[in-house]
């Protein structure tokens, strides 16, 4: 056993590498962009030439060698703020998505196993929440709670958890109805075993794909909120907020405000390309069986 498991692992890595070699250009592009963004986000303070909200010159300075993208409306270095924003925007979106998967995922699995009144109650409540458009619901909650980073994570997380719940419940329902889960119950296994050994390993692949898509969605929602002035608050650097702050430049034909907007677009396009490839891959494998 001990000697054979690594062999299996190694072949798994080899298989993954083989898949990667066959991947289309779009997936490669997406992966490279994603890695780049992650690197920038992790090492933002080391890369950025100046501090996050340090005023370095006049407002709206032109692009120059010293300030490659010029300065913003308060005279802060655009490039540095773009770099710090990677950390802030991506971090908050990640936290919110994880929050939503934790709550929505757990509730979804519980509903699929317990069925009965628990499933009915949670499902009906979630249905009602989903009847309010997510951006509107978020706006409403934020108007009450106020826009702080923590509130953003919770509010967006809750809104998104409804979608995660739906999916997890559906996927998990399919697995729960399979004979091997019944076999485990007939053996007398307790709930934790059934959940973590029998169900979770089998619903993980679709959930990982969904995580990518939800992350995109959360990221876009937070950017939109920030753009509307209701997300991350100044002086924090955030791409959506930076677009709002410098939007007037557009009317003079200056493309600087498009840079943070483009940064958002590039990231979401990259994630979508990777997820699309992943989806194609997993559905293809299913057909093959």
């Amino acid at each position: 056993m001990e000697t054979k498991v690594p062999r299996a692992r190694r072949s798994k890595t080899a298989a993954a590498l083989r898949e990667l070699k066959k991947a289309p250009w779009s997936a490669w592009f997406g992966l490279i962009v994603l890695l780049g963004y992650t690197f920038v986000a992790l090492f933002a303070p080391l890369i950025a030439p100046s501090k996050e909200s340090e005023i370095v010159g006049d407002s709206y300075m032109e692009w120059s060698a010293l300030y490659p993208f010029g300065t913003d409306q308060l005279g802060r270095d655009m490039l540095s703020r773009m770099i710090f924003a990677a950390q802030n925007s991506m971090g908050i979106a990640l936290a919110a998505t994880m929050f939503s998967f934790l709550t929505g995922g757990i509730l979804g699995i519980m509903a699929s196993i317990l069925r009965g009144w628990f499933d009915q109650a949670v499902s009906r409540f979630i249905d009602a929440l989903m009847a309010i458009p997510s951006l509107i619901f978020a706006l409403m909650m934020l108007s009450i709670l106020g826009s702080t980073a923590i509130n953003l994570i919770i509010v967006i997380g809750v809104v998104d958890a409804t979608r995660v719940f739906r999916l997890t419940r559906a996927v998990s329902m399919n697995v729960v109805s399979l004979d091997f889960v019944e076999a485990a119950r007939l053996r007398g296994e307790k709930l934790p075993w059934v959940v973590f050994r029998e169900i979770v390993p089998n619903i993980l692949p679709p959930l990982i794909t969904e995580f990518g898509l939800r992350y995109c969605f959360v990221f876009l929602t937070i950017s939109s909120l920030s753009f509307l002035g209701l997300g991350l608050q100044p002086p924090t650097a955030d791409w959506g907020l930076m677009v709002k702050e410098n939007a007037t430049l557009i009317t003079y034909g200056d493309i600087t405000p498009l840079l943070p907007a483009g940064a958002i677009a590039l990231l979401t396009v990259a994630i979508n390309f990777v997820v699309d490839w992943f989806l194609h891959k997993t559905s293809g494998l299913r057909d093959g069986q």
Binding site: D179, F180, A183, L186, R197, E198, P201, N202
Partner: peptide, 13 residues
């Protein structure tokens, strides 16, 4: 118990 379809009776993971 033994089931009709071994595909669904065994956890694929």
């Amino acid at each position: 118990m033994i089931y009709q379809s071994p595909d669904t009776a065994l956890n694929p993971r």
